[in-house]
């Protein structure tokens, strides 16, 4: 068993890891949880459950390694296993649809967007946040991990348990969907998004 090789931490070490390596990520964890659940109480529960699991399995965490990625992986798995089930949204269907239709690694990068930089810069309100929230959970997740939290493709692959090629293609598709949303907002704001 692999756990045998890993030394057990003393209570003092556990507390130190928990306070200095785990707790500093609580803001990011809560932001992620909130954007997955859209509910303050669910987000709190999800973060709390994640930290309790992290403490329970602290011996399988190697001190000084990437605690943030380790915690995000636990949170994402808890969300899939527990919260998604009780969610009112038909996200299970949603998820399978994504898996079936969008998981090919071949993406068309030539799909150009006529969205203007100026139009995006003028979105000072909640447009970008609403656009992000409107994406299916798998697309939303990759954008949160990459653009909000700054994870590398390799870290994302580990957090999501998918190959790097899939990370790359899912991210590209997610950004295209986000741009579609932003384009429709830009049109409502009176921007001319047609190419002249």
């Amino acid at each position: 068993m692999s756990e045998v090789q890993r030394k057990k931490y003393s209570d003092k070490e556990k507390n130190s890891i928990f306070d200095h390596e785990f707790m500093p990520h609580i803001d990011s964890m809560y932001n992620f949880a909130y954007r997955l659940t859209f509910d303050e109480d669910d987000a709190k529960d999800l973060v709390q459950d994640t930290y309790l699991k992290a403490y329970r399995f602290i011996n399988s965490f190697e001190k000084g390694t990437n605690a943030k990625a380790w915690l995000f992986r636990i949170l994402k798995n808890s969300f899939i296993n527990e919260y998604r089930k009780k969610s009112k949204q038909p996200s299970k269907v949603d998820y399978q649809e994504v898996e079936t239709y969008y998981n090919s690694d071949n993406v068309d990068y030539t799909m150009t967007s006529d969205l203007r930089v100026d139009a995006v810069k003028d979105m000072l309100g909640d447009e970008i946040s609403n656009a992000l929230n409107s994406l299916a959970v798998d697309f939303r997740t990759v954008i949160i991990l990459c653009d909000l939290e700054g994870f590398t493709y390799e870290e994302m692959a580990k957090i999501l348990d998918i190959p790097i090629g899939t990370v790359r293609s899912r991210l590209h598709r997610a950004r295209n969907l986000l741009k579609d949303k932003l384009r429709s907002y830009a049109e409502n704001m009176g921007y001319d998004t047609e190419e002249e």
Binding site: I26, D27, Y30, R35, V120, K121, D147, L148, R175, K179
Partner: peptide
């Protein structure tokens, strides 16, 4: 375009206040 979208995402979408008692 890609650059400005990333910047705005980062500035606008990470401000969720963590409940104090959490």
């Amino acid at each position: 375009l890609e650059k400005v979208i990333r910047e705005i995402l980062k500035n606008k979408c990470t401000k969720q206040m963590v409940p104090a008692e959490l």
